[in-house]
């Protein structure tokens, strides 16, 4: 937890940020319209006496009071997917359309992959890449449970993903996961500047490849669930010679601008267009999201 002190200067209301780390997160789920209409699912929950609250900022997000939402019949039927609230943000910023070809470079366990599939109304093609064989089974199982029929799974090192034409790319990169600390308080003890720097090398490789693969004018979204600028703004800055940033914002969800300075280093002013989601501002986990347009 002391490690978080390095963010005292950049996170507003830092004491509240610290306090909320010890408050567990409410369970949230996404309604899966690949299998059920939103209104019918909400009716099922009401009739079944399952208490829930709709998220104010996303019509397909719900907060459940159930301790074990994975045990609900609606989960087994693939009507809902358990997904952390701010984890629903990157696909919305990516904005995939039916009929497009979209690459999800770091796909497992598939929450965002299937959200993309849903936004595309099961049309077009989602190429879901996951380098780790052991993580592919979770990805596959979620795609099948949720009825995603436009998803193919590949197993490449994302940094060397083969040349294909794609309209949009999501890079939801492996990261130090500091934003998950409300679920797993042990995370802080595993964080270090060295770890962030090692991850940044991988993240930069992934994002550079993603920018290379996108068609000119194509959209690339880079996201992590960490606060470390080394894994966020510094990574995004490395591709600003071949892509430009666009504003990330969603009505009803409070975000802070990306950093333009870190530990005395001045960064591109454009980086303020990125979004930092902090747990104490929306009662969620933490996330970083950047939307890039390939030049």
């Amino acid at each position: 937890m002391d490690y978080a002190e390095r963010y005292r200067e950049i996170i507003p209301e830092f004491d509240r940020f610290q306090e909320i780390q010890s408050c567990p997160l409410a369970a949230t789920a996404r309604i899966n319209e690949l299998k059920i209409d939103r209104s019918r699912l909400l009716e099922r929950l009401r009739v079944g006496g399952i208490s829930f609250e709709q998220l104010g900022w996303y019509s397909h997000g719900i907060r459940l009071s159930s301790e074990k939402p994975g045990k609900l019949l609606d989960y087994m039927l693939g009507f809902i997917h358990i997904q952390e609230e701010v984890s629903m943000v990157p696909p919305l910023i990516l904005g995939p359309l039916p009929g497009e070809r979209v690459l999800d470079l770091c796909a497992s366990p598939g929450g965002k992959t299937t959200q993309i599939s849903q936004m595309m109304k099961n049309q077009g093609l989602v190429v879901a890449n996951e380098p780790s064989l052991s993580r592919i089974s979770a990805l596959r199982s979620n795609c099948e449970r949720l009825g995603a029929l436009n998803v193919v799974i590949t197993r490449y090192d994302g940094r060397q993903f083969p040349e294909i034409d794609v309209d949009r790319v999501l890079v939801d990169a492996p990261c130090s996961s500091e934003g998950r600390a409300r679920r797993d308080p042990g995370i802080w003890s595993r964080c270090s500047p060295k770890r962030s720097q090692d991850l940044a090398a991988l993240q930069t490789g992934l994002l550079k490849r993603a920018v290379k693969l996108a068609k000119p004018g194509g959209v690339i979204v880079y996201s992590t669930c960490t606060y470390a600028p080394e894994e966020n703004e510094l990574v995004v800055q490395s591709v600003l010679d071949s892509a430009r940033l666009e504003q990330v914002a969603l009505p009803g969800l409070k975000e802070c601008p990306g950093l333009t300075e870190w530990q005395g280093r001045i960064l591109s002013d454009e980086l303020k267009l990125c979004a930092r989601y902090y747990p104490h501002q929306n009662d969620t986990g933490g996330f970083f999201v950047a939307r890039l347009i390939k030049e």
Binding site: R101, Q123, L125, G147, A148, V152, T154
Partner: peptide
């Protein structure tokens, strides 16, 4: 396996749609 009828890039795949 069943998959939406879309043109597939010529790369190698682990799975195609749903078993």
């Amino acid at each position: 396996w069943v998959l939406r009828d879309e043109k597939l890039p010529r790369i190698s795949y682990e799975t195609l749609g749903l078993r």
